[in-house]
């Protein structure tokens, strides 16, 4: 228990070290979650709507061209 307390105390700098790590974890986790959330939502929507229009095949085999992707 004592060793744990010492560790948390971080040589009297605990009040600065742990918020630094805590904020880092929170923000990086938020980045991951917001990225995955949007990706899942769009993947699901695409799967839902896949049958809406018959796929138009172009040379690259993609449904839309790079130009469409850039300009939309």
């Amino acid at each position: 228990m004592d060793a744990f307390r010492t560790f948390i105390d971080m040589g009297s700098y605990g009040d600065y070290v742990w918020p630094s790590y805590g904020l880092t974890v929170v923000i990086m986790a938020w980045l991951v979650m917001s990225t995955l959330r949007r990706l899942r939502a769009r993947e699901q929507e695409l799967a839902r709507r896949q049958g809406e229009f018959p796929a138009r095949r172009n040379r690259g085999g993609a449904i839309d061209t790079p130009k469409d992707a850039a300009s939309s």
Binding site: T35, L39, R42, E43, E45, L46, R49, I63, D64, S72
Partner: peptide
């Protein structure tokens, strides 16, 4: 994260294409 976001945006673009096809139809 960059790869995931680009992937997500490409799917978003595909969805918008479907939107405009739907509007055209």
């Amino acid at each position: 994260l960059l790869l995931l976001r680009i992937k997500s945006d490409l799917i978003g673009a595909r969805l918008r294409t479907l939107d405009s096809l739907r509007q055209d139809a």
